[in-house]
Amino acid sequence: MNGLSFSELCCLFCCPPCPSRIAAKLAFLPPEPTYEFVSDENGKCSFTLTDRAEWQYSEREKENVEGFYTRTNRGNRIACLFVRCSNTARFTILFSHGNAVDLGQMSSFYLGLGSRINCNIFSYDYSGYGVSAGKPSEKNLYADIDAAWQALRTRYGISPENIILYGQSIGTVPTVDLAARYEVGAVILHSPLMSGMRVAFPNTKRTWFFDAFPSIDKVPKVMSPTLVIHGTEDEVIDFSHGLTIFEKCPRAVEPLWVE
């Protein structure tokens, strides 16, 4: 979350309070794009990285990465990435990444992660991130993951029971929203936040009507097995967020607290 002064926060929340503006000010830091989708004459996209993406593998291994666009129900064209890490993978992870990164910067991590745990990885860039159109907002976050979910289900024919939802930091917000509506193989929440107000004002005890990202109110509806990961010394999203989310999960498994 961005560092704002007390007076700026007061102005932001009081003149007048608007969840989408709060979200944009506090949560979204899209970087300069580190990749491109280049379409050939048949409309197939090739995934081209800049040096800032810091690709850690050979050019040949890029053949395992498929990029394409899909459109959200709010009209934004967003970038999606399917990383085929294993031909024998039972599960595919639908990964919602953290803030201040895009698919290019995450691509090496995805390939390494999937190869180690024998899973394929499907990810997407939020509206306004990477080469995705539109602007970052709370409503767009939910529309973005819905579009990614539909693309994963229809384009690759993957059943919900073979999908693992993984959200990191701000990515836990759309992950919880989707998981509250669909039952999947499993859910992983890495450094989740209870809500925007609770991050900005740690003593907040209830969800106000103008609060953004109210995951704390949605997580009781998540019926899939859920792993919560959180650093006990996290300086961005306090450990109390992960602990409370864990306590509210109906099907939480043993958490992973990173010291």
Rank of each mutant, 00 (worst) to 15 (best):
C10Q: 12
L12Q: 06
F13L: 14
C15F: 07
P16K: 13
K25D: 00
K25A: 14
P30T: 12
P30Q: 11
P30K: 12
E36K: 14
A53F: 01
Y57S: 13
Y57G: 09
R60G: 13
E61P: 04
K62I: 02
K62T: 11
E63H: 15
E66P: 01
R74A: 08
G75A: 07
N76G: 02
L81K: 08
R84N: 02
R90Q: 13
H97M: 05
H97N: 01
V101E: 12
V101D: 05
Q105H: 13
L113Y: 13
S115F: 02
S115C: 06
I117L: 14
S127Q: 08
A143P: 01
D144N: 15
D146R: 15
W149K: 11
W149G: 09
I158P: 07
P160E: 08
N162G: 03
N162K: 15
I164C: 12
G167C: 05
G167Y: 03
Q168C: 08
I170M: 14
G171A: 13
P174D: 05
R181F: 06
Y182S: 05
A186Q: 03
L189V: 02
L189K: 07
M197Y: 04
V199S: 05
P202K: 10
T207V: 14
D211C: 07
A212W: 07
F213M: 14
P214M: 08
S215N: 15
K218E: 05
K218P: 00
K221V: 00
M223A: 10
V228W: 05
E235P: 04
D238Y: 01
F239W: 13
L243H: 09
C249P: 02
V258E: 01
